[in-house]
Every structure is written in C-alpha cells, then in structure tokens.
Design a protein around this nucleic acid. Structure first.
Lengths: 345, 345
DNA sequence: CACGTCGATGTAATCGATTCCACGAGCATC
DNA sequence: GATGCTCGTGGAATCGATTACATCGACGTG
C-alpha cells in the first residue's frame, strides 16, 4: 500500500508538503498542490488512519456499548447514533454486551485500548471498576437510556413516568385491578425505574403492587416467558402483565400461547419500548414508545460536545403511550399505517 | 495515559524488555518479568493498540459491511460474526449500508483506511470500483449472504432453492395457483436468485410467473407495501404474495390490513428470512429460515483463514421451510415454543 | 541598497509500540 | 585458557503520519 513517502517521491516534493496538501494547509503553491493531487490519484493513495491517529492522538471514533443488539430498540438507537456521528465526522464502533457485565467490560477495555475519542454506554450493571475509572480518568463519556448513579457523566434518556401513568389510567379504565410487571435487572436504572413508575401510578388509583406481581426478568425473552408462567401459576393470577421491554413481552406472549390462553381475553399485555411488529402481532400490542432516534442523536451531540471541550449536557425526552388492543377494547381512533411514520426526524 | 516508556522507567528496565514481557517472549528473566508486571499494575498501563497496529501492520480487526441493521436477519448475522471473531481473537467494526451503494462505499473506504485485517461484505449492489479494486488488490475478503459474480472471493451463503420448492409445494397443495413475488433489488444476488428459484419451482407445477406478479422491491418495508398495493389493484390479484425478505413482508401486511383484507382468507403471505416475531403475528407467518448463526460463524472462519494465509473456502448451507398459518390451514404439528430453540449452536 | 516580511518548502523530531542487532556474562567443551 | 553457545538485555531503527523550526527567495519599503 502506498504511503505518504511514495506520494512525495512521485510528486517530487517532501512529505511535509504532501501532508500540507492533504490537510489543506494554506501555504502550499498551486503548482505543488496539483502535482501532489496528481500523484495521489495515480498511486491510489489513501492516508493511513492508524498512523495519523498515533500522531494526532485522535481517532475520530466513538465507541458505543449497548446491552443487546438483538433488541430492536438498541438496534434503532445504534443506527441513529451512527448517522449523527457520521454527520459530525466521526465513526462508531459498536460493542454488544448481551446484558453481560463481563462482556461489557471486554468491550469497554477494547475500545479504550483503541483510543476512541469518546464512549457512549447503556450500562448493563451498576458500573464495573473499569468503567468508573474511565469516567474518573476523564474519558469523554455519555450514558444513553440507562445510567449509573453517582457518576458525573451526562445522561441522555427518556422519561417514561408520564406514559406509565397514561398506561395505568388506560388499564384502570378498562376495569383491570390486578396488574403485574416483569421487571428488568435491578442493577439497571431502567430496570428499577419502570417498576417504581408503575407502582407510583398504581398508587394514584389506590392499587397495590404486591411482591408476587413483580417478576424478576433480565430484559431477555426467555425471562419474560418464565416470569409469565409464574404469574399464571399464582392462585390469583394478574389480569394484566406489563413487560419492561419488548423482548420480555415476546416471551410473555410465548408463555400465554403455550397455555392455550388468549390476549387480552384471558390476560392483558403491555410493553415498554414500541417496535414496528407490535402493530401486527396477535393482538396488536399496547406499548410505550421512546423517541429512540432523537435519543441517539442527542447522545452523540452531547458526547461530541464533551470531546471538543464544550460542556455536553444531559437530555431527558418524554416517552408516549401507544394504545392498541392487547389490554382490551380497541382504541377509539385507528392508527395510521406505520410504514409511513417510520422516521420521525 | 501511561506509555511503555513510563512502565520501563518505573520497572528500571528498557522498553524492549517491557515489550518482551507483554508479548511473552521467552528470553526474559523471571526477575525482570515480575518487576515489569508490577509496574504495569501500579501504573494501570494498557498498550496502545494504535501504536501497536502501526508497527505490526495488523489491527486484529474485521470489517463487516451489512445492508441494513434494522433488518433482524442482519442483526443476528452481525451478532454471530462478532461472537466467532471474538473467539478467534478479532474485533469487528460494523458498517451499515442501509441498502445504499454510496453508504456502502463510505464504509468500505473507512474500514480500509483503518487498515482492518479483513472485510466481510453483504453487497448492496453489483460492486463499486472501490470494492472490486480492494478485492483485486488482495484485501482478504469474504462475501456473506449476497455476493458479486465474477469476483474471486469466497462466498458464504445459504441456498434457498430447496426450501422455495417446499414452499411452492405447500402452496400448491393448499390450492393456490396465482402466486406473486415481491423481489429484492436486481443488483443483488439474493434479489435475483429468489425470483429465479420461485419461477423454477412454479414451473415444476406447470405454473407461470407473469411479469405482473413480479413486484420490484428494495428489501425495505415501504417497498413491500407499495408493491402489495399494486398487486391488490390488479384485475386478477394473486392468491399468494411471497416477500423476498422479512421487512417487505411487514410492508405487505400493512398494505393488506389497510385495505381491510385478511391473511390468509383474502390473500396468503409467505416470507424469506424467518424472525421470532413471525410466530406471534396475525396470522403466524410461513417463512424460509436461514441458518443465520452458522453462516456468520462460517464466514468469519473463512475470512480468518484467508488473513492467516490458509485457503478460506466458500460455504453453502441449506435453508428450510417453516410452515405456519399465513398461507392457509394450520400446519399438522404444532411448533415448539420458539424461545427455547433460539440458539442452534 | 539594506532590511524586514511573507510565502513556500524541506529537515527532522515525535507519537508508542516492535524487533533486529550488538554486547556482555556465564558456562560447557576441547 | 581460548573458543563458542546461550541467555538476558539495551540501543536504535522502524511503521506513516503531523508539525515545529529553519531556510531561502522574492518583494516592498524607507
């Protein structure tokens, strides 16, 4: 592969001049510039990003560590992150933690070793020493979706509290009184918060959230199935199951179906995180939708701000309830075809 | 951030010795080794991967350029690729082309600039000059899922021919005679092949595939919707729509629903690429499932073989038909809960 | 005319690793 | 005791870029 020396030789100038042309430094003669560009062309030269990074101590790369690539929510987040990063001149390297703290650490370490300029994390747990050290050491960092309390890092997330209140109002209005939740891992903020928001919303209607109606899941489908089976085995099963993410909702659906029961007649189902397939499931699933694309973009902007020396602020956006038929009677107005409102930018 | 020099100073040895310890070169005294390791520990030193790559001309990184991250098929592929790569000591950088040749080129260029050791591509088009040059220049490369004819690069893919024959047999058995297909872009091999396999399978039953029953899609949901509307507007609409990927099937479902029609009573639907949600859609969708995880793993093995100087061979694995209810009467045997057979490794 | 300024260019140091080569000590062999 | 190994180690070159500093010629000004 041709290096800058080859280009310099071909153009009959020094490497310094070639470098100046490439980084369009002002003081280069038009003559030299054209000769260099011609040489670049004939040799098919491309600057070696590795060498450049070593010298400049910048990789123009962001690391993104997400909890689970197979979850459409994170996949959409990753897409918007990459898009915004590209617009700002950065590349993104994605690490998939699969909800495993050890894998998360593996990726964080790997990304730091590669000297990425900044790190975007949706933490799987309460924060490993590695991540805490990185934050303290001043690595530009931003949390998305989930965060770690007590760490001085901007957080970009959505607040589902109001949407959960709307959901409970909707459920209460349909006559449901025994409401259960499939929670996410207690080590994650979203795992805890969604339960709290749910409990609080129930309280407003004088309803309790008994321990038996809190199932411990891990944001994966299998746990949703297991927890739902437990609910169905209860002497007094809940009338509604609220899954704290879409994959656990899928597992819940599997469990209900395996028993030969039907949604919503035998048991109602709602989920946190809306996905396109929910429109076409049997029945269409009522869900809380986050402004995923906007979250990803805001997170990148906050991170790049930090990298480039600006403050970089936390952002909280509201989620909203999307009513479908999985909790009972159909919504008043029919939903427009989802294909057309896919991108909300 | 501490460098190798700092470690050498702290341990009272030369950088050469530190490097030897780190790469466990045999001739280092036990004494020196422990001193270096202690210094590494106290300084929290981590080797700079950028510098190392510059010197060794190896990044231990694979590039993966996929056509669409939002497509669960590619997401699953990406996951298995990363997993196998990690097991073999490589990292993966994913580039999402969004079915756009220009974006694909952007990512290929970016990855080459970063001097990745090898490239895994699922091409969006017939091959840009950039990609052809890279292949000719000897960049270790492997195609997954889709490929570019006439380029001497191993291909890891699945052959859906037999499964498509099974599908047509199934449809024919249910009494369907007017079968239509939503094709993928003609620039992609999978776009063309699936139509050809379908036509061939129809031929075995003496059925034609008229032009009016071939809709041109682009593997995105919106095109599935558009094409399906066209089919429904035909004086003699098809009895079955076969979507060449899962997103176009989603679009088709949207279109059918928007007309107030029902699957499979009014029109049957089948898809290429199975996803977990198809079990719970209304109705459950009959699909052709690829051994996605195995494809990803095989592709990585082939690529790493090439990188490390071994031949690196093409692999073709069979796809299989999964019958559900979207084409008519339910399958004879009920499907086991899909949660449990998620991983097929 | 002498001098300062400015623009264009080249030389060389530098980033943080790896690795070739040389060197000295210790030890076995003849 | 000289010779030749092996082993452990350090010095220095190297990878491919960027950039501070020096140089040199042309040009404007007093």
């Amino acid at each position: 592969m041709a290096s800058i020396k080859d280009v310099a030789a071909e153009a009959g100038v020094s490497v310094a001049t070639v470098s100046r042309v490439l980084n369009d430094h002002p003081s280069v003669s038009a003559e030299a510039r054209t000769r260099v560009l011609a040489a670049v062309e004939t040799l098919g030269y491309r600057p070696n990003a590795v060498a450049r990074s070593l010298r400049t101590d910048q990789t123009h790369t962001l690391g993104l560590v997400i909890s689970d690539v197979l979850n459409p929510y994170f996949t959409e987040l990753a897409r918007s992150v990459e898009e915004e990063a590209r617009a700002l001149g950065y590349s993104v390297i994605i690490g998939n933690a699969d909800e495993r703290p050890d894998l998360q650490d593996h990726h964080v370490r790997n990304l730091l070793d590669r000297r990425i300029d900044g790190l975007l994390v949706s933490p799987t747990d309460g924060g490993s020493p590695l991540m805490l050290d990185a934050a303290r050491a001043g690595t530009p960092m931003v949390f998305v979706d989930r965060w770690i309390p007590g760490v001085d890092v901007p957080v970009v997330r959505s607040d589902g509290r109001a949407a959960v209140r709307d959901l409970v109002a909707h459920l209460h209005g349909l006559g449901h009184r025994r409401l259960a939740i499939i929670a996410g891992p207690a080590a994650t903020t979203t795992g805890r918060e969604r339960v709290e928001a749910f409990r609080e919303a129930l309280g407003a209607y004088g309803l309790e959230l008994p321990d038996a109606y809190i199932g411990q899941g891990d944001f994966q489908a299998e746990s949703g199935r297991r927890v739902t089976e437990g609910f169905l085995d209860l002497p007094e099963p809940p009338e509604v199951v609220f899954a704290a993410d879409n994959l656990m909702a899928l597992g819940a659906l599997d469990a209900v179906r395996a028993r030969g029961l039907r949604v919503p007649d035998d048991i109602a189902l709602a989920a946190f995180d809306d996905i396109r397939w929910f429109v076409h499931t049997d029945p269409p699933i009522t869900a809380i939708a986050q402004p995923t694309g906007e979250l990803g973009r805001a997170a990148v902007r906050a991170l790049v701000d930090r990298i480039e020396g600006r403050p970089g602020e936390s952002v909280t956006l509201p989620a909203r309830l999307v009513v479908r038929r999985s909790c009972g009677e159909p919504p008043a107005s029919s939903e427009p075809s989802p294909v057309t409102n896919r991108s909300q930018s």
